[in-house]
Amino acid sequence: GMDVRRLKVNELREELQRRGLDTRGLKAELAERLQAALSGPSSG
């Protein structure tokens, strides 16, 4: 899988935006949010 901790802030935001998620917050928050999205149930 993707290691969200290795991504830069702008990369985290890009991935979040692609999934329609909130791109605001600290890098740690963005990484946590993206990780949750990646490990969560895949819809679609």
Rank of each mutant, 00 (worst) to 15 (best):
V4D: 03
S43G: 13
L30I: 03
G25L: 01
E11N: 04
R19Y: 05
R6H: 12
L12F: 01
G44L: 12
V9E: 09
R19W: 04
E29Y: 03
Q17D: 07
R13M: 06
L34V: 02
V4W: 07
R18N: 06
A28K: 11
D22P: 10
D22W: 02
L21Q: 04
E32W: 10
R6V: 09
N10R: 15
L38S: 04
G25E: 02
A37M: 05
L12E: 00
R13T: 03
D3R: 07
G25W: 02
L16T: 01
R5S: 15
N10V: 09
E15I: 07
G40Y: 11
L30M: 06
Q17K: 15
R6I: 09
K27M: 07
K8H: 10
D22V: 04
L30D: 00
G44P: 12
G44C: 11
G40M: 12
L34M: 03
R19Q: 04
G20I: 01
S42W: 11
G20T: 01
E32K: 14
Q17P: 01
A37R: 02
K27D: 04
R19A: 03
P41E: 14
L12S: 00
E14I: 12
Q17F: 13
E11K: 07
V9T: 08
R18K: 14
Q35H: 10
E11A: 07
K27E: 06
G1T: 14
A31K: 07
V4N: 03
Q17S: 11
S43N: 12
K8Q: 09
E11V: 06
G1I: 15
L16Y: 01
N10T: 13
K27N: 03
M2Y: 10
L21R: 02
S42Y: 09
G40I: 10
S42D: 11
E11W: 06
E29W: 06
G44A: 14
R5I: 07
T23R: 04
S39W: 12
E29G: 03
T23L: 04
K8W: 05
A36E: 08
G44T: 13
D3I: 08
G25Q: 01
L12M: 05
G20D: 04
K8E: 12
E32F: 09
G20W: 02
G1M: 14
E32R: 14
S39I: 12
D3V: 08
R19N: 03
K8T: 15
G40L: 12
K27Q: 08
Q35F: 11
E29V: 10
D22E: 07
G40S: 11
R24A: 09
E11R: 08
L26K: 15
Q35M: 15
E15Y: 06
R13I: 11
E29K: 06
V4M: 05
A28C: 06
M2I: 15
A28L: 07
E11Q: 14
L7Y: 06
T23A: 07
L38Q: 04
G40T: 11
V4Y: 06
L21G: 02
G20A: 03
M2L: 15
G20S: 04
R24F: 07
N10W: 15
G1E: 12
A28G: 08
R5T: 13
G1L: 14
S42V: 12
R6S: 12
M2E: 06
L26V: 10
Q35P: 00
M2W: 11
L21N: 02
P41M: 13
R18Q: 06
T23S: 08
R6Q: 11
Q35R: 13
S43R: 09
P41D: 12
L12Q: 00
M2R: 10
A37G: 03
S43P: 13
T23M: 05
R24T: 13
S39D: 14
G1P: 14
